[in-house]
Simulated assay, not measured.
Amino acid sequence: MERMKEDQDQIYYHSGADLESVKDSPFLEKLIKKGYEVLYLTQAIDENMITQLLDYEGTKFMSISKDNFKFGEKDQKEEKEKNKALKKMYKPLTKFLKKKLGDKVSKVRLSNRLSDTVCVLASDQYGYSARMEIIMRAQAFADPDSFGYMTPKSKIMELNAHHPITKEMLRLVESGEDDERAAELGHLVYDTALVASGYVMRDSDYKSYADRMYKWIGESVGVDPSAPIVEEYPEEEKADSEEEKSDGDANLKEASSSSADPASEDHSEDSSEDHDELLYRSRTRVEDEVFMATVSVF
């Protein structure tokens, strides 16, 4: 509070899993540039405590990721004046995105808290922040129905009017040359902002997000992502495969011919029996000679 700006009449705060994730949050961009003080909350209990505390020595707390965020009086008035013309200029885009994104968003508007990032998603004033949503979902035996009203699926989409991507989306919408591409870009911006703002994507949205992202990656490197998959192998690998197959067939053939010739097995067994008999007779003859020699000595 000792370092707060002269017209800062709220204690701004932001929560995250650790110090680095809080510092890197896009919600902080313009606040830091304007020299505002922000309280960093990094422990799971912090934000829950702040929502119960309400104020400190008469100064209220304000989350910088909520819908009701505003700067100090002087900066707020300045931002409002600057965005007046921009709001009218970007109305075709905000209206277009609200229609295309459907129930994903409750509002689409220009942001007064961004300087470098294209988009952020804010939560309702009385709803959970992104961090609190994660904490509540992680609770043992958590029942989604018990806190569902505090975690609405519709978010407030805020766009940076000065970002090149936002300008390109506006151009596409105004030109009407490719509504599908403008809509795809809008969905990608929304999904990326969802993750960057700290929210967890709905399970039903992961597949469409991945498909959309692969499509844009393919186009960026000149590949048609919808092209049929053709299995191709290098020629050397084919040759090795054919040689292994040939050796395998030869071994199988040899084994089959051996097992198919019972005479060879019988002949082998007969030879073994003859050898054993000759060995027995030779041993018996030697024993007899030794016996007779011993008798003659006695």
Score class of each variant (00 low, 15 high):
6 E>D: 09
76 Q>M: 05
128 Y>D: 03
163 H>I: 03
222 G>E: 03
100 K>D: 03
119 C>M: 05
44 A>H: 12
123 S>N: 11
156 I>W: 07
127 G>I: 00
9 D>M: 08
168 E>W: 14
290 V>C: 00
4 M>N: 09
117 T>W: 01
191 D>A: 00
217 I>G: 04
100 K>E: 11
30 K>N: 11
292 M>E: 02
105 V>H: 00
46 D>K: 10
49 M>V: 15
36 Y>P: 00
238 K>V: 09
16 G>K: 04
242 E>I: 05
7 D>A: 07
18 D>T: 13
250 A>Y: 07
36 Y>V: 01
130 A>C: 10
65 S>F: 00
60 K>D: 11
44 A>R: 13
50 I>S: 00
106 S>A: 12
198 G>V: 01
268 S>R: 15
219 E>D: 06
287 E>S: 13
18 D>M: 11
3 R>P: 02
134 I>P: 02
116 D>T: 11
76 Q>V: 06
133 E>I: 04
139 Q>K: 08
270 D>E: 07
251 N>D: 07
249 D>Q: 07
164 P>G: 01
292 M>K: 14
23 K>M: 15
285 R>D: 14
195 V>L: 05
223 V>P: 01
276 D>L: 13
145 D>N: 12
260 A>V: 00
109 R>N: 14
162 H>C: 02
191 D>K: 11
163 H>A: 09
14 H>Y: 14
246 S>R: 14
174 E>R: 07
204 S>Y: 07
191 D>P: 02
243 E>R: 14
210 A>G: 06
201 M>S: 10
155 K>P: 06
81 E>P: 09
43 Q>R: 05
260 A>D: 11
212 R>E: 00
103 D>R: 10
153 K>I: 08
35 G>S: 07
46 D>H: 09
14 H>N: 08
220 S>T: 12
143 D>Y: 08
147 F>Q: 01
196 A>M: 10
261 D>T: 04
58 G>K: 10
233 Y>R: 15
221 V>S: 00
219 E>H: 08
259 S>N: 09
40 Y>L: 10
232 E>R: 03
116 D>I: 04
234 P>L: 02
169 M>K: 12
284 T>V: 13
127 G>W: 12
63 S>K: 13
250 A>D: 09
278 L>C: 06
53 L>K: 11
244 E>D: 14
13 Y>D: 01
247 D>N: 15
157 M>V: 08
245 K>C: 04
230 V>T: 14
236 E>L: 03
82 K>S: 10
86 L>I: 07
46 D>V: 05
265 E>H: 14
80 K>S: 07
203 D>M: 01
153 K>H: 08
87 K>T: 14
233 Y>H: 08
267 H>K: 15
229 I>K: 15
272 S>T: 12
19 L>R: 15
122 A>G: 09
3 R>N: 11
153 K>L: 09
40 Y>D: 02
173 V>G: 03
56 Y>H: 07
286 V>I: 04
133 E>A: 10
74 K>Y: 08
107 K>Q: 13
13 Y>Q: 06
168 E>H: 14
173 V>N: 02
249 D>P: 02
